[in-house]
Every structure is written in C-alpha cells, then in structure tokens.
Design a protein around this nucleic acid. Sequence first.
DNA 1: AAAAAAC
Length: 560
Amino acid sequence: MEAFQLLSRGGVKFDKKRFQKDVQLFSKEIPKSVATTSQLPDGELPKELDYFKYAAGGSAKRKANGGDGKAAKKRKVEEEPDEDEDEEEHEDVDEDAPPTIRQRVVAKGSNVPPHAETFEALVERYQMSSLLLSNLTANGYKHPTGIQSHGIPILLESRDLAAISPTGTGKTLSYLLPLLCSLGAPSASGKSEAGAGVRAVIVAPTRELAHQINNECMKLAQGRKWRIILFSKATANTMTDKAARDKVDIIISTPLRLVASLKSGSLELDNVRHLILDEADRMLDAEFFPQVEEILAACTHPKIQKAVFSATLPANAEKMAMQMLKDPIRVVIGLKDTPLPLIAQSLTYVADDPSKLPSLLAYLAKPYDPPVLIFTSSQPRATSLAQELVLNGIPNVDCLHAGMTKKEREDAVSRMRRGESWVMISTEVMARGMDFKGIREVINYDFPTSVQSYVHRIGRTGRAGREGKAVTYFTDQDAPYLKTIANVLLQSGSTVPEWILKLPKPSKLKRRQMGKVKREETVNPARKIGRRDAIKKRRDMVAGSKRRTEKEGKVEGEQD
DNA sequence: AAAAAAC
C-alpha cells in the first residue's frame, strides 16, 4: 500500500524523451557494428580509468535544484513494526543526478542528513580535502549521482547505511569517497589519530570486482600515502608480520581470503572503523554469510561504521543487513530489484537448448555493438560456447569464469578493458559490479536463475547514463520462471508479449512440470516470511505498472 | 530453485 501511494503520488517522474536526447551524447563514438568498424574506438579515458565517468555528460541539461525545502515527512509503515518513532522518511525526486539517473529517492531512518547537491558542498560541510575534490575532477566526476549525493553525507556523518541504487549509478564512489574523507593520516605516518592498522575493509564477491574497486580507490587516493591493499594470497604474504600490517589503511578483499588470514592469525581487524559490504545481498546469501559473520566478529572496534550496497536487496537479505547495522539509514534510489529503464530488454524464444547456438550465430551475423557480454549458466557451457563461436569464425571471442587460472581471468578482464574482446562469454562471476564502459549489449544465453541475477547481469550495460540492450533467451524448460522475469521487464519499461503475462503462476507450473506436487510441510516461520515477501513483491509490480500507465498514458491493467 | 564463487 505504502509503495503504491508513494508512486502514485507522482514520486516517480520519468522522462523518456529527455533520456534519449542525453543518451545520444554518448553514442557518437560507439561503432555501429563490427562489420563497418575494423577496430574499437579509443575511449576518452585510459583503460584502467574507464569507471571514472559517472559525472560525465548530462549536466548541461540539468534543471536547477528545487528540492532543498523538501519536507521530512513522518510516516508509519504498518509492515515494519520495528520502526522507531522518530524515524523520518524523506522523499524527493533527485534533480541533482544526471538525467538518466534521475529517480525517486527514499531515505528512511533517524535524523537523515540533507543530501549534498555538489561535491564542492562536501568541502564546506565536511571539510573534505581539496585533494580529494581535485582527484574527483581529474577523473571526470563533475556532479554526484543520486546515491552519491544522498549516501555520501550519511557516511560522512558516521552513520550506518543500507544503500540500494540501480546498476551503473556510481555506488562504489558513494562509499570510497567518504571512506577516504574520514580516514585521516596514513597508518604508516604514525600520525593517525585512530592508531595503526587496517581501518577500513571493503568486501566484494569476486576477485574481479575487488580489483576494480581497488583501482578506483587508488585513483581517488592519489597524492596521499595511504596503503591500500587488494587482498590476495600474495599481498597477504607481505603482511605476515605485525609491523607490516600496522602500516595498512584499507583492505579490499573477497570474504574467504580475509577469513583465511584471520584463521591463520596473520590479520587483525580490531581497529577497523569502516566496513563495507558491496553486493550486499550476495554477501549475505547462504554461501557467503558464514564468512561474512567471521569478518564481522573480527571487527571488534566499538566505533565501527558499517554500510551495505547493492542494486538488489531481497527482503530476507535486507533483514539480515538491518540486523548487522546500528541505527541505519536506508536509502533507495529508484525502484529496488529493478533494471534501469534505459536498458532495452527483450525475451527471445529459442525452443530448446540445441536451438540456442544457431540463434546466437544468426544474431552475431548481423551488425552488433561490440563488446557483447553473453551469460551462460555454468563454466563448461561458457567454455564450449566460446569454442563453438570461434569454430564458427566469430572474431575476438573471449571467455571468463572462475574455473580459469587467476592469470587467465586477469588477461580476459584486461582484454575487455582494452576493447579487444568483441564477444565475451561468462558466468555469474561477471554478473555483479563489473564496469566495462563499452558494453552495449548483454545476452542471457542461459536463463538467469533469479530476478537478482537477471537485474545484475543486464546491469553490465546501460551504465552511467548510456543506453543498453539486453536479450534473454528462453526455452520451454525455462517457462516456469519466465513470468517472474517478464514482470521485471514490464516494471522497467520494456514490453513483453501478452501470452507470457498470461502464464500461470510460476510455482504451480513448476510443480506440474516436475510432476511432483510437494506435500505441504508444516508451516514454519521461514515459509511465512517467504509468502509475505511474495505479496510485497507483487504489490511493487503493480505499482510499477501503474507508473508506466501514468507515464505513457496507456491503460494496462496488470493482474496477478 | 540452482549454479557460481570464495581459499
């Protein structure tokens, strides 16, 4: 009910025409096709810098900000009984962000600090150093995105934060900037007020993402002598003695690597003042959570600030996140678990698995925008698809999955960054966080196994205000989950054939197809939570379609 | 629901 009201009150303003105009600013240097272009154009930025561009473009068309006097509304939400009385909820349309990222903003929590309209405002309000400001400028950041303008002040006021913002909207900078702001003197200088030793930890689910965060962090930190460590076996080995560890300021790592060092006694996290979980829902899922728990347990400093970031945060993950955060502020930019509308999504029927390859070959025979990122469901399928494409004469095919060696993975990423890959076949390892500026098209060769997976996979395109295209193959076998994904398309402004929307409920169909109707177990609390989420979700979808209706003047009654 | 990813 609440979500619906927020939306129908006009909280969502979405101007597609304006988008398209701005998007064209970016289109000029993208090749129309490989057929007409012998090589990829040079990016405006060096390859290692290609994620420094969130502020690029769009600012000229920005409207003056009028959101200053936004009223802090007090609102009770029945579904969330744990809400404090003095919690406030701010709602406004973010006029600050580049137009493509201009979205509804909801900040909820006690004493939410006002957002920052510019990076310069951070210098005045929080004494951000001019060095950081000039590093921002040097790397092409001109104007904060929605999550940056709202999230950074919250973190700078030492508050815990759960930040939900769509893919490609600059979440990394949202935590790196305040982190570097509040870090103070390097540990190695001996002048750090917070004492020696690791003071900040950033955890991410894949090596590639950790590496990318590290790169971004180093660019921002340029000119200061902070020791920033991309944690790996090799770097961990350089820190076996305490004296070396005490010179470290920031560690960026995957969870298991940290846990391994904690267990071997070669790492202390007792002086950590900032802990960031990137891709939070992934970090809190069943496989990663035990490791994250160990990391949390090792971060014993009472003044620790924690923050979680993701584009998707299912209810159970959000619950866990809120439990680990202290008096958190929850910021949602746009709609949770929803792709950006500037990604043109479509579903393609391919009957069965053997029909996929011919479809893909036909697709690649026509002009396309390289590089194309193709997702498969397993490592062997990624490998064999890559081989098939090579055999069929597709140029510059690459493959990346976690079964490859570290070096192979690194090489694949750098070919991607240099624009040498035209067709990249990958698994879920590439689904989250990775920011390759050039990706214009994503193909889900194998159907994603969750809404979250879908949203993150296609979120590899449409980044920083650019247009993107996402094609998802589905077979008869995928039918049980088709409708769920179709609703995501609908919610984010793409169209779906009507028959798909008329499919029966996923669970029923799935059971029927599997030929075994599971006996109803005794209803346990976990099940109840699941049902509640499902209902909530559905409400969000209805709200989404309502929004479309208003925007496009179409009447599209969506049921179920 | 199910594979992938983490060392």
